[in-house]
Computed example of a mutant assay.
Amino acid sequence: MEVINEQFIDIKCIKATQPIGQMFIGVIDSEDLEKITYADVRRLSEGSENREVEDYIGIQRKLDTKRAKNEIGKYVNLVDATFPNSIILSISSENAKYIENEGVLRILYKDDIAKVLDGQHRIAGFEHYNQSRGTFELIVTIYIDMELEDQAIVFATINKEQRNVSGSLVTDLFAFAESRSPQKTGHNIARALNNKEGSPFYNKIKILGNADSSSETITQSTFVESLLKYITKDKQSDRDFYRRNKEKKHAKLEYVDPKEADRLFLRNIFIDDETDIKIAQIIWNYFWAVQQKWPIAWNEPANNNILNKSTGFIALMRFFKLAYLSFNKRDEVITKEEFKSIFDLIDLEENDFNRQKYVPGGIGQSALYNDLKTQSGL
Rank of each mutant, 00 (worst) to 15 (best):
D238K: 11
N303E: 14
W288L: 13
M317D: 06
T275F: 11
I271P: 08
H250Y: 11
K321R: 15
M317E: 06
Y230H: 08
D238Q: 00
T232L: 03
N303H: 10
D262P: 01
R244H: 01
F241C: 02
F241L: 09
N304T: 13
I277Y: 13
I296L: 10
K309W: 06
R243H: 07
D273Q: 04
N268V: 04
D331V: 07
Q292I: 10
E254G: 00
K309E: 11
D240H: 01
S310T: 15
K309C: 09
S237I: 02
V256C: 11
F327V: 10
K229H: 05
R244E: 12
R243T: 04
F241Q: 03
D234P: 04
E274D: 13
P258F: 07
Y242L: 00
N268R: 05
N303A: 15
D262K: 11
I296S: 06
K248C: 06
K229M: 11
D262T: 05
L316K: 04
S326W: 08
D276R: 08
L307F: 13
D262L: 04
V290F: 06
F327Q: 05
A302H: 10
R239Q: 10
K235S: 12
P295M: 08
N245P: 00
D276L: 04
K321H: 04
V256M: 09
T275L: 08
I334N: 01
I271F: 04
I279W: 04
W288G: 09
M317F: 13
N304H: 12
E300H: 00
H250Q: 08
F313P: 04
K293H: 09
T232D: 10
K278M: 15
R239N: 03
